[in-house]
Amino acid sequence: MAIICTTLEQVRKNIDRLDHQIVALLAERGGFVSQAARFKKDSDSVKAPQRVEQVIDKVRDLSQSLGANPDVTEQVYRAMIAAFIQQELAEHAVLSKESKA
């Protein structure tokens, strides 16, 4: 159920509350991204464009069912996925060097 705010201060307080939850979830997601790097054999499997599109399709559908704007959701997810791919590529490079040593 949506919270109805009567002041800008209430709106900002609720946004701050949600930001805390979002950042906590990003940290959790990042942990799984780090784990995924161990299972991928090369940078192409890290980038996985087909998987990216599967995730985008899934979150657009989820967005519609939850009453969010699918275009905003897609933009946010594309930016987030791109950042996590960079993280995973860096971790994968380190793991590759370690396995060759």
Rank of each mutant, 00 (worst) to 15 (best):
A2H: 01
L26Y: 08
S43N: 14
D42N: 15
L89A: 08
V72D: 15
L66K: 09
N14E: 15
V59A: 05
R12Y: 10
P70I: 02
R38G: 06
T6P: 00
E98F: 09
Q21A: 13
L18Y: 12
S34L: 11
L25C: 02
R51F: 12
N14H: 15
D44Q: 15
R17Y: 14
E9H: 07
P70Y: 04
A68G: 01
A2Q: 02
Q64K: 14
L66G: 01
S99I: 14
Q50E: 15
S34Y: 07
A2F: 02
K13R: 15
K40Y: 07
I85R: 09
L8H: 12
G31I: 03
L66Y: 10
E88G: 03
C5Q: 06
I3Q: 08
K100W: 05
Q75G: 15
A82V: 00
A48V: 00
I56C: 01
Q54Y: 10
V55K: 06
A90C: 05
S45G: 05
Q54D: 10
V59H: 05
A83N: 10
N69M: 07
I81D: 04
V94I: 12
V33S: 03
Q64Y: 02
V11F: 09
H92V: 05
E88R: 03
P70W: 01
L95A: 09
A37Y: 03
L89R: 07
V33N: 02
E88C: 05
D61G: 11
L66A: 08
L25W: 05
P70M: 02
V11K: 10
Y77A: 09
K100N: 08
A24T: 03
V23Q: 08
V59Y: 07
I81H: 03
T6D: 07
N69G: 08
K58E: 09
T6Q: 09
D61K: 13
R12H: 12
A27W: 03
P70Q: 04
L66M: 12
K40I: 02
L89C: 09
T73Y: 04
P49K: 06
D19I: 07
A36L: 01
S45E: 15
V23D: 05
K58T: 14
L8V: 14
A82S: 07
